[in-house]
């Protein structure tokens, strides 16, 4: 009796060429510019700017809008691994990010910030991207911990994304394994500082030398 295999046999491709890897590295370093902006808002402010003396209006307005944005950054509650425990500790009463205007919110559609707390597996990455896409612009992302930054100890594992910045654009990287709540709090303060520079630079905010 001939025994048929129940599933098709797919030969495993073996990449032993380092050039293939380098191509992928370069491909993922290319990111579209202005991926942080809502294009409608951009068009309106650019329109006002083009009037004579328009910058007199837009510059204070930007300062006000940035102040408003940075004072109510709502992180979406999204925990992936053990870093999520430290993230919860940061959100809880002892470290209390609510005094900075951050309310952990259980809906991506009302949130401005995603704290990627933990290892991003290849199976999880599409879901992470989907949640990120559900957040309204302008939105920010904090990569928390070694795994989300670069893959961490699992970097050479077969199933781990080598850094969440291959999936979504990241503003602040918080190192640590896991980072203590103080580190995450520092990262969130850095993020607020970046948000204060948001419209002035027009692109992704440069790090503030005052804080760094």
């Amino acid at each position: 009796m001939e025994i048929k295999p129940p599933v098709p046999i797919i030969p495993a491709p073996i990449w032993r060429n380092i050039k293939d890897l380098q191509e992928w590295e370069q491909l993922h370093q290319k990111r579209p510019e202005g991926d942080k902006h809502s294009s409608a808002f951009e068009a309106i402010t650019e329109g006002i700017h083009s009037f004579p003396g328009g910058f007199v209006v837009t510059t204070p307005a930007d300062a006000f809008l940035n102040w408003a944005r940075k004072s109510s950054v709502w992180p979406v509650t999204f925990g992936l691994a053990c870093c999520a425990i430290e993230m919860m500790a940061t959100f809880a009463s002892r470290f209390d990010v609510e005094r900075l205007g951050m309310v952990p919110w259980a809906s991506p559609r009302h949130s401005d910030l995603m704290v990627v707390s933990g290892t991003v597996t290849i199976k999880m990455a599409p879901m992470l991207l989907r949640i990120y896409d559900q957040m309204p612009d302008p939105k920010w992302a904090v990569s928390m911990g070694s795994c989300a930054n670069s893959g961490g100890p699992f970097r050479h594992g077969y199933h781990v994304v080598k850094g969440v910045d291959r999936v979504i654009p990241v503003d602040v990287y918080v190192p640590g394994c896991p980072p203590p709540p103080e580190s995450l709090l520092n990262g969130l303060l850095l993020l607020q500082d970046q948000i204060a520079q948001f419209r002035r630079t027009g692109k992704r905010a440069a790090p503030n030398p005052k804080v760094d």
């Binding site: 797919i10 030969p11 495993a12 491709p13 073996i14 990449w15 032993r16 293939d20 890897l21 992928w24 491909l27 993922h28 290849i122 990455a125 050479h156 077969y158 199933h159 781990v160 994304v161 080598k162 291959r166 999936v167």
Partner: peptide, 18 residues
């Protein structure tokens, strides 16, 4: 492929995430 086989190379790319 089947990743725990010894013939499965380390750092096998998985587009677009690896």
């Amino acid at each position: 492929g089947h990743p725990l086989l010894k013939s499965y190379a380390v750092d096998t790319p998985y587009p677009p995430y690896r």
